[in-house]
């Protein structure tokens, strides 16, 4: 048994914000902790439930159908915003994927309506009348302790996201659309808060990033390597699918 951990993960709205098999990400985190003897605890919080700012090392929010995302947006602001902000303040990792990424920003403008966000990332999203941005995508990432690494996955979003001065892009688009199809930026991060449009199960295609999240959430501990031949091949296939 390792001295580190356990890794305590809190999934936000696991029943609603899970449209692209987001549970694949949670399963990656779980197994990669278990195989290293690091404990793993998973809790979910749903609509109307209060969030405990001290109860998790990593908060995860995936993507949802439009109607479900609307339900979650207002609940997030009403019941969870201050706790999430406090968690981010003490260095917990907050990771939003696709719709979850949009809700970590200031707002998501859909026509005349505006879905509120929690404002933990200095980004704004506007739903475009143009085509959805769909396809394989690869980005090169510069994160603390992970420079020039590649994330490969799939994106499918109608929103165009623009980053303000208070956040940095998660990565630079090598192939694909990224935040808005225009500025070659993808995702955003600020401290320990991260968001990306690489949706659903991106961690199975990017085992290194699963480990980066585990390590960062546990205070930057070093993780012993795992036998990753299959994971490396899946990563190579995802890159090839994106054309990188």
């Amino acid at each position: 048994m390792s001295d580190a951990g356990p890794l305590r993960v809190c999934a936000l709205y696991p029943d609603l914000m899970n449209i692209y098999a987001d549970r694949g990400n949670l399963l990656m985190l779980q197994r990669r902790c278990e195989w290293r003897g690091i404990g793993f605890e998973l809790n979910g919080v749903g609509i109307g439930e209060e969030l405990d700012a001290d109860a998790a090392d990593l908060y995860y929010m995936g993507g949802g159908q439009d109607r479900d995302q609307e339900l979650c947006a207002s609940d997030l602001v009403e019941h969870k915003r201050s706790a999430l902000a406090a968690a981010a303040q003490r260095g917990a990792v907050i990771f939003g994927v696709c719709g979850g990424y949009q809700l970590l920003g200031h707002a998501y403008q859909v026509g005349d309506a505006e879905l509120p966000g929690v404002g933990l990332l200095d980004v704004r999203t506007v739903r475009s009348d143009g085509p959805r941005l769909i396809g394989n995508v690869a980005i090169t990432v510069d994160l603390p302790g992970a420079s020039d690494q590649v994330l490969a996955g799939f994106e499918n979003h109608a929103g165009r996201t623009h980053i303000g001065p208070g956040a940095a892009p998660l990565g630079r688009v090598l192939r694909g659309h990224g935040n808005n199809g225009a500025d070659q930026r993808e995702g955003a991060f600020s401290g320990s808060v991260l968001g990306t449009y690489l949706h659903g199960p991106l961690l199975p295609k990017n085992a290194w990033f699963a480990d980066w999240l585990i390590s960062t959430a546990l205070g930057g501990i070093a993780l012993p390597p795992l036998e990753d031949a299959l994971e490396d091949q899946a990563h190579a296939d995802a890159r090839r699918a994106a054309g990188v």
Partner: peptide, 17 residues
């Protein structure tokens, strides 16, 4: 074309490598 990702899926589902 995505054989390896499927193998990863099975691995994480509990099938021994």
């Amino acid at each position: 074309t995505r054989a390896a990702e499927l193998a990863v899926r099975f691995k994480y589902a509990g099938v021994p490598e």
